[in-house]
């Protein structure tokens, strides 16, 4: 059983989605995250064990290697796909309440900004660390963030992403709207031009250069 868990974790780390996927070349023809997760559940491994002992550590290693620039965006995307394939099998358990997630995290790229790679990577790392993620996409108006939080009462934090100096200033309006409408909700901001000084200026709760920081911060508020 431990072997299955280790193999799933390995598939997520190296982006092996399913048997049919030709990536990574050295795992061609082998079972991927999809088949192995099914097999693990059928063998009676508890879904929360899979989440905590296979998915989370796999994604942690991915995040670390990305921060250290040992892997890049294409490899991250493959890991995200492998995680999605595995996570799909857990969805029924989340829905039935058999497995609880740490909370809901709403994320989006702010109005006027179309960059979504960084946001997607943050979303996937947060999901892989055990949160439910509601991804609003790109070019998201302040009111839509507020609506999304209202629609998900278990939402504890919102992430805003911006890559342009012209659009990052729009984060201030979102923070203001969220503070007014949903005061208890934490706001994380990020994206290449965002720094600590800017975060403090607009009154957001947290920023970091990479998804790992966001995961650690969310961990601290989930506790």
């Amino acid at each position: 059983m431990d072997d299955l868990i280790a193999r799933i974790s390995h598939c997520i780390e190296f982006g092996k989605i399913d048997r049919a996927s030709p990536y990574p070349p050295d795992m061609k023809g082998e079972d991927g995250a999809d088949e192995l997760t099914r097999e693990a559940l059928d063998a009676g491994i508890a879904p929360d064990r899979l989440l905590n002992e296979a998915f989370v550590p796999g994604m942690e290693r991915v995040g670390r290697k990305f921060s250290e620039r040992r892997i890049f965006v294409p490899q991250m995307l493959m890991s995200a796909k492998a995680m999605d394939a595995a996570m799909r099998h857990l969805k029924p358990y989340f829905q039935s309440g058999a497995v609880r997630r740490k909370g809901t995290f709403v994320i989006g790229t702010v109005a006027g900004d179309l960059h979504d790679i960084g946001k997607n990577l943050v979303a996937m790392m947060v999901e892989g660390s055990g949160w439910e993620v509601v991804d609003l996409g790109v070019d998201v108006a302040p009111s839509r963030f507020v609506e999304a939080v209202r629609a998900h009462p278990e939402c504890r934090a919102v992430g805003l992403s911006a890559m342009l100096t012209t659009t990052m200033t729009g984060m201030a309006a979102v923070v203001e709207a969220l503070r007014a409408e949903v005061p208890g909700c934490r706001v994380l901001v990020g994206g290449a031009p965002v720094n600590e000084e800017f975060r403090a200026m607009i009154g957001a709760d947290f920023t970091s250069r990479d998804p790992q920081g966001a995961v650690a911060y969310l961990e601290s508020i989930a506790a």
Binding site: G15, Y23, P74, L77, M78, K81, I117
Partner: peptide, 12 residues
């Protein structure tokens, strides 16, 4: 699109 292309690089 960037996600699509990066996926294509890896898969095909």
């Amino acid at each position: 699109d960037m996600t699509g292309m990066f996926t294509l690089l890896m898969m095909d």
